[in-house]
Design a binder for these strands. Structure first.
Length: 1055
RNA sequence: GGGCGAGUAGCUCAGUUGGCUAGAGCGUUCGCCUUACACGCGAAAUGUCGUGGGUUCGAGUCCCUCCUCGCCUACCA
């Protein structure tokens, strides 16, 4: 092997080591070993990254964490599967490709939509482009993960739209459809007018927006002799008992004022509502209002949904009561609450917008509803229409000649508005037909709730969703097995389900899993029976027969008599062509991306047809995967995914794997990691330019350094901050935090180099096992520290405490091993084969403990150490789990508890304390580092020091230890309550500095003594505190007083 | 409005069930190229633990009040 470089240079090793792992097939999981009982399973599913962009630092953190868990368990002997893959990310990817085309000066998807409308295959062509885009980014993401060292089972990599995943989607859709858990509904959806698709509730982001309350006046009218437009005057209102009507001119037309933030929807109003308890309600009962400009007359209705204004009994402090007028404009087609009012009162629903949210008379707002003057708004965008409505209202008054404008006032108002998480424009509540998944059904939502560990559930939730079959009674129950880390996220999960609404799963996109439903709804002229007859004729089989065979399922829910047919098998061309021959058409929409993501634990494992998955992938053991690895061990993900993804995977896994009872949750644990923010606590984002690219960090610091730093930052809080700096030399963002990891790697490299150098002097030999009790103090101490650290590491990993893991190995390696052990053994190791054996064993254990987080450097070093003979130390041996050819397949340290040596730790603690004290004296007395000094120690210490002397001499720069009194000048220090002296510190000592040092020490001691005295003189403490604590305090006081006396004596001697 | 998290050294963060003089890394100061490492070694300085109360012999830790920041969630009258 070539000599080791002076500093660790990651780029020299990382790609070679990666290739070594791949060649060794080290990351391949063998499910049959699990099924045969040879090994316990450990499985992690990667949260599939979107193929829309390269991975960012958050991904780096998430995947580092997963790799740490996976590598540790692989070394521990678990059969370990980390399943990689990517997500097709419907809207996001389609938008990216559209944008790319436009950036190239083309028309984007619009061009392909035209082609499709003209009978061409625009849809297919566009999907081809998206496919290319996906291939590009999938390759990039894969490369990034591999560069980071992620030990995924790369042969099994999946994509949410590949054949195997597609089969799962098809089957899942079919079963839910057949079971009545997927249905078609016409209702207001969250509509993204830019991408022109429906969105699920959780794809809508609330953003604060500066808007206004607009107060609009609607003139009151009534019907006389068939003319519904006769003005109602204030005088008439006064007669009817309308409060304060008399404050207006008697003969002028009266109005009601509505408050709105969205005046542009007023053309779609179909009523004005008032609370029946409102004192004005009776006066306006039976009256109508006439919508200005469009001239349409709409009724005034009464509904107690309307909030009373404070003036008329509304709750002061309630924002709505404060702002409202008591009259509510009702626009059922453009507001969810109004839609419900509309349903209650049988109101018309007038949609005034095109799918791009421009005002249109082609989608429900016809000429009749529009009136003569409404045309001015047509074609305007939402924003333009708002301005125009306000302008028009402002320019007019209720009736010609009356005072004041139709726009009574405008009040600035900041409120949050739903925006598309993809296009970032406000979503439009839009009436349309969509497919819904009935997640509120107990079989889905209820079982998701019941999946939680009972200790993490709230009482209310257990009451609302009791365990279907309490474990005590039924063995088969799989409730209560999923645990969140940190536990507080269980609450987020529960609350999400509490407020759940049915999930809109159709998207008006091209990139995605196309909905496998054919219908005749586009052809209402043809009778249903004729459709069915044609279909039977074409297929040559009776409908009932095919349905009973499970190949199709159908619903007939709509009043129009349309029938929706779901075809189970994508390859069932006979059925499909029969449907199409009969005049059925396939639904043009695709499924929400999360529908396929929700199936990830199933689809990646070959569900529903593992033998088909085997055939299409060529992976022989596909059929064993599901049984071996579902449920998986842990899902590692970010906060915002709890709702979007965790819940849905849980619902689907339990539903589809259920038989008599609900199936198992897809994972035992869910770990939610912190979110990385920049130094100012902001999200990292492209627009802010504060993002850090993991590959840049790997270039500058190495993959291990990045991984260690991220691991070390991963505390149990919800955010962590990473100060971002621009590296002037490269023009790239970086962070000084990563120096921590780089420095650690370099230290590890050099300590290893040093150890290897020692092994050239001290011969390593195999031999009979060493009894640790016969080892020297420092060796026993080091073995004890390794044992201690191993326990800490195991506990930390078990509880997903990644910072604790990082700190444990850092302290073990740097503080214990480098600072003390290596320094201590320098003078003795050359002559002690036993000590050399200990060093060999200890460094081996350290490399293993560090490997999960720093795989490249530890594997590189392992290559150098592995060939060296390793003499066994009793209780310290490591069982190889797969092969010693690579560290990552080798074993994990399992030191016996007996190696925890309290006596050695205590004794060495005294050595360290003495050494530190002497170093302090040296530093304050400005002793040159190379100068060897003399320690004068008699009495009790002398005996101990005799045993420790090589340690003290080496570590404290002492050339001799003597019981004699110093002859010339000397400095004094106190140790364990006695005074000792150091001499030969310098050619001439500075007595003043010596006095200062002693006086300062005296002051510190006095302060401590005063504090402890105070505590002991408090009778409450002595009486009530535990006896051992009081005893401890007394001992401490005694020690301090001895120290004080000794220091005092030294000071007096100084004269 | 509801929920959650954070506020500890100049910066980034630890601090498990209350109990030795509140810790680490970075940064700062001083001294060192001590035969692995200057990406290093030795030493030092730096804290009213957000505010104000309470419980307790004892509070960074438990309870209450308030302030600041962040996230999630519900509100587009």
């Amino acid at each position: 092997m070539p000599p080791m470089s002076k500093a660790y240079n990651p780029a020299d090793h990382e790609s070679r080591i990666w290739q070594k792992w791949i060649d060794a097939n080290a990351f391949h999981a063998n499910p049959d070993r699990v099924l045969n009982g040879e090994a316990r399973p450990y499985c992690v599913l990667i949260p599939p990254p979107n193929v829309t962009a390269a991975l960012h630092l958050g991904h780096a953190l998430n995947n580092s964490i997963q790799d740490i868990l996976v590598r540790a368990h692989r070394m521990m002997g678990y059969e370990t599967l980390w399943m990689p893959g990517t997500d097709h990310a419907g809207i996001a990817t389609q938008t990216m490709v559209d944008k790319r085309l436009k950036d190239q000066g083309k028309d984007g998807i619009a061009e392909y939509k035209r082609k499709e409308l003209d009978g061409g295959n625009g849809r297919e062509e566009f999907i081809g482009l998206v496919q290319d885009f996906k291939d590009e980014f999938e390759a990039r993401i894969t490369h990034q993960l591999q560069t980071m060292g992620c030990s995924c089972d790369w042969d099994r990599q999946r994509f949410t739209m590949d054949d195997i995943c597609a089969r799962a989607v098809r089957e899942a859709f079919f079963r839910l459809f057949k079971d009545g858990l997927i249905y078609r509904g016409k209702r207001l959806v969250n509509w993204d007018p830019v991408t022109q698709t429906a969105l699920a509730d959780d794809e809508v982001e609330m953003e604060e927006v500066d808007g206004h309350f607009y107060y609009l006046r609607y003139p009151l009218v009534k019907e006389i002799e068939g003319d519904p437009t006769i003005p109602v005057t204030w005088g008439e209102l006064a007669t009817r008992g309308y409060p304060e009507a008399e404050t207006h001119p008697e003969d002028e037309q009266a109005w009601v004022t509505v408050a709105t933030t969205r005046p542009e929807t007023y053309m779609g109003d179909t009523a004005v509502a008032v609370n029946p308890k409102d004192p004005r309600a009776g006066a306006v009962r039976g009256l109508h209002v006439m919508l200005p400009i469009v001239g349409r007359v709409i009724p005034i209705i009464e509904d107690d949904y309307v909030v009373l204004p404070v003036k008329y009994g509304g709750e002061p402090g309630d924002a709505k009561a404060e702002m409202s007028t008591g009259f509510l404009k009702v626009t059922p087609a453009h507001d969810p609450n109004d839609y419900m009012i509309g349903q209650r009162h049988n109101l018309d629903t007038i949609n005034i917008m095109a799918p791009d949210a421009s005002i249109s008379d082609q989608h429900g707002w016809d000429r009749e509803a529009r009136g003569e003057d409404g045309h001015v708004f047509i074609g305007k965008s939402r924003e333009e229409a708002r301005k125009l409505v306000i302008q028009e209202f402002n320019a007019r008054s209720v009736a010609e000649g009356s005072e004041g404008s139709l726009l009574e006032k405008m009040v600035p108002h900041r409120h949050s508005v739903g925006h598309s998480y993809r296009s970032h424009v406000p979503v439009e509540p839009y009436l349309s037909d969509q497919w819904y998944c009935k997640v509120t059904d107990d079989k889905l939502r209820g079982n998701a709730q019941r999946a939680l560990l009972p200790e993490q559930r709230t009482e209310q939730s257990i009451k609302d969703w009791p365990e279907s079959r309490p474990k005590m009674q039924t063995k088969g129950s799989t409730d209560g097995t999923m645990t969140f880390y940190p536990s507080r996220y269980a609450k987020t999960y529960e609350t999400w389900h509490d407020n759940l609404r049915d999930w809109c799963i159709s998207r008006q996109l091209w990139w995605g899993h196309r909905i496998p439903v054919w219908s005749n709804s586009h052809n209402p002229g043809k009778a249903l029976d004729d459709f069915l007859q044609d279909w039977e004729d074409s297929l040559g089989q009776a409908w009932e027969q095919v349905e009973d065979s499970g190949k199709i399922a159908a619903t007939e829910t709509l009043p129009e008599g349309a029938i929706f047919v779901c075809v189970r098998d994508e390859h069932d061309t006979a059925i499909v062509s029969a449907l199409e021959n009969a005049g059925f058409r396939r639904d043009p929409d695709v499924l929400d991306t999360w529908f396929s993501s929700a199936l990830w634990p199933l689809s990646t494992m070959g569900w529903p047809d593992a033998s088909a998955a085997k055939d299409s992938s060529g992976i022989e053991d596909f059929e064993s995967l599901l049984a071996a690895f579902n449920p998986t061990s842990v899902l590692t993900t970010a906060r915002e995914i709890i709702t979007l993804w965790v819940s849905r995977m849980t619902m689907f896994n339990r539903y589809f794997l259920g038989e008599e009872h609900a199936g198992k949750a897809p994972f035992k644990d869910v770990f939610i990691h912190a979110m990385i923010q920049d130094g100012e606590g902001r999200k990292m984002s492209k627009t802010l330019g504060n993002g850090v690219d993991p590959l840049d960090i790997i270039d500058s610091h190495g993959a291990d350094a990045m991984r260690f730093t991220l691991c070390q930052m991963t505390t149990q809080t919800q955010d962590v901050r990473m100060p971002v700096e621009l590296d002037e030399s490269t023009g790239k963002n970086t962070s000084p935090k990563f120096d921590l990891g780089r420095n650690l790697c370099n230290k590890l490299w050099n300590a290893s180099k040093f150890a290897l150098g020692m092994f050239e002097k001290a011969e390593l030999k195999a031999g009979i096992p060493i009894n640790p009790e016969e080892l020297s103090l420092i060796d026993r101490w080091m073995l004890s520290r390794v044992t201690h650290a191993t326990n800490k590491v195991n506990t930390a990993l078990r509880n997903y405490m990644f910072k604790d893991y990082a700190d444990a190995i850092y302290d073990l390696f740097w503080r214990d091993f480098c600072d003390w052990y290596l320094e201590s053994i320098k003078p003795t190791i050359a002559d002690s084969p036993e000590q050399a054996a200990v060093l060999r064993n200890v460094i081996d254990a350290i490399l293993r403990l560090m490997h999960p987080v720093m795989p490249f450097i530890t594997e590189t070093l392992f290559e150098r150490f592995e060939p060296l003979p390793m003499r066994e130390i009793e209780g310290f041996s490591i069982e190889v789990t797969q092969s010693n050819a690579t560290l990552c397949q080798s074993g994990w340290p399992t030191p016996a508890d007996e190696l925890r040596d309290e006596v050695a730790e205590e004794a060495y603690e005294r050595v360290r304390s003495l050494v530190t004290t002497i170093r302090e004296v040296r530093a304050t007395a400005q002793v040159k580092p190379k100068r060897q000094i003399v320690l004068h120690a008699g009495g009790e210490l002398a005996a101990d020091i005799a045993r420790w002397s090589p340690l003290v001499e080496t570590l404290a720069g002492v050339e001799a230890i003597t019981a004699d009194e110093p002859e010339g000048q000397s400095a004094s220090f106190t140790f364990e309550g006695s005074e000792y002296r150091l001499s030969n510190l310098a050619d001439a000592l500075d007595a003043g500095a010596e006095r200062d040092r002693l006086e300062k020490e005296l002051a510190t001691l006095e302060k401590s003594i005063a504090g402890i005295n105070g505590r002991l003189s408090n009778p409450g403490y002595v009486d009530k505190a535990p006896a051992h604590l009081v005893e401890q305090t007394r001992a401490q006081l005694a020690q301090l007083e001895k120290d004080h006396a000794a220091t005092q004596a030294a000071l007096e001697k100084l004269g």
